Simulated scan of single mutants.
Amino acid sequence: MLAFGVCALVLFAALSLALGSRSIPLSTVVHALAGTEHHGDANVVTGLRVPRTIIGVAIGAALGVAGAVAQGVTRNPLASPVTLGINAGASFAVVAAIYTFGLTRPVEYIWFAMAGASVTAVAAYAMSRSGGDLDPVRLALGGTVLTVVLTSWTSALMLASHRTLDEARFWLAGSIAGRHLDTLAPVLPFLVLGLLAAFTVSPSLNALALGDEAAQSLGVPVARIRVVGGLAVVLLAGSAVAVAGPVAFIGLAAPHLVRPLLGNDHRWLLPGCLIAGPLLLLAADVLGRVVARPSEIEVGIVTAFLGAPLLAVLARRVAR
């Protein structure tokens, strides 16, 4: 199944290079990638669509793995960087930085996105403690409350300053359009570190699913696993938000799409999400380009439109 997923990802990467405000023949795409053509549509492929596709793969992988780790650490199937409030915290911190310091480039957002994601993750975790144990229901409710509060604060800052509104509104929609590789480069070390941390704790997440007491009886250091797993989610989600803005539902959907195919073992689930996340994001990005030609819809809007019904279905299934 992983091989099939890789093939599907390659297909959508090719579509991402070929489709846009106008279609480019695959032969031109191949020549542009091979370096045998350097004008016209070939320049569009190498200058705009290749960086966009690479960034889409990186951000999709970060969000997919972050969602799987968040669900494993919290034992909550509805957990994701969005539902835990991490995306909202990172977004508020970035908009506050734009309002206060006049930032204008996504490359400047990274430290503020990381700080906002970290503070929100700690706050959500603190709100979820019940008798010394993690309560998944309280965690989801706490994340929802934080998301509502931080989103309202973000809107207030944007309404208070036209300059902040102009700078932040496109970024807040969640988009990989117009992004260049120099935007991805500063966050790449954090993204890689987050992936390494996630895969390091993946075997222990299987034991954590049995409950804290059972995991401790098996010799799993529950507190340390939660700290490392939470750090992985913050690094991955913060990196993604810094580059592309708050892209919703990739982290929630990817694990639920992978589990029926690969099972609940996190040693397989995480590699599956590493593929499914970019696949979902590129598919949404391509769809946003095709349905609104000659314009396009930001990928964050497409994922939100498709992800809201998914969240309702998953919530109903979990309630049952």
Results as ranks from 00 to 15, higher is better:
54 I>L: 15
295 S>H: 09
259 R>P: 03
195 L>E: 14
264 N>E: 15
148 V>K: 05
49 R>V: 07
29 V>C: 13
196 L>P: 09
244 A>I: 08
222 V>S: 05
160 A>C: 01
319 A>K: 06
46 T>E: 07
261 L>A: 10
276 A>F: 11
202 S>L: 01
121 A>K: 02
121 A>P: 11
243 V>S: 01
72 G>I: 05
112 F>S: 14
128 S>C: 07
97 A>S: 12
199 F>C: 10
14 A>D: 10
318 V>I: 14
134 L>I: 15
51 P>L: 09
156 A>W: 10
237 A>R: 10
106 P>Q: 14
306 L>V: 12
109 Y>M: 00
21 S>A: 15
26 L>N: 08
22 R>E: 02
289 R>P: 04
138 R>N: 02
133 D>K: 13
20 G>Q: 01
163 R>G: 12
181 L>E: 03
209 A>H: 14
234 V>G: 05
97 A>T: 06
291 V>R: 05
284 A>I: 08
252 L>M: 03
157 L>I: 09
16 S>T: 12
166 D>R: 15
223 A>Q: 08
4 F>A: 15
91 S>C: 08
211 G>V: 04
88 A>R: 11
226 R>E: 07
280 L>H: 12
11 L>E: 02
61 A>Q: 03
307 G>M: 07
84 L>A: 10
140 A>F: 01
219 G>M: 09
305 F>C: 12
256 H>N: 09
291 V>I: 15
35 G>T: 08
155 S>L: 01
166 D>Y: 00
82 V>W: 05
217 S>Y: 09
31 H>G: 11
142 G>C: 02
276 A>I: 14
139 L>C: 08
114 M>I: 15
34 A>L: 09
169 R>V: 01
143 G>D: 11
233 V>D: 11
61 A>P: 04
19 L>N: 11
135 D>F: 12
298 E>Q: 15
250 I>T: 00
31 H>Q: 15
283 A>L: 12
17 L>Y: 00
104 T>M: 10
156 A>K: 10
74 T>P: 05
144 T>K: 02
161 S>Q: 09
125 Y>A: 14
129 R>W: 11
15 L>G: 10
95 V>M: 05
203 P>V: 11
280 L>S: 13
12 F>Y: 09
105 R>I: 12
177 A>S: 09
101 F>R: 13
285 D>A: 06
164 T>H: 04
105 R>G: 06
278 P>G: 11
64 G>A: 07
66 A>Y: 08
41 D>Y: 01
171 W>G: 04
233 V>G: 09
232 A>I: 03
276 A>K: 13
98 I>H: 04
35 G>S: 06
62 A>E: 13
207 A>K: 04
261 L>M: 03
91 S>N: 05
103 L>G: 04
170 F>Q: 06
55 I>G: 08
176 I>R: 06
158 M>W: 00
39 H>G: 03
175 S>E: 04
84 L>I: 10
310 L>P: 00
237 A>D: 03
196 L>R: 12
274 L>S: 07
281 L>W: 12
60 G>A: 14
13 A>V: 03
293 R>H: 09
258 V>E: 03
43 N>Q: 15
213 E>D: 13
222 V>F: 05
310 L>H: 02
35 G>E: 05
86 I>G: 13
177 A>C: 01
35 G>P: 04
1 M>F: 10
312 A>D: 06
22 R>W: 00
11 L>V: 08
27 S>W: 14
264 N>P: 01
241 V>L: 08
95 V>P: 14
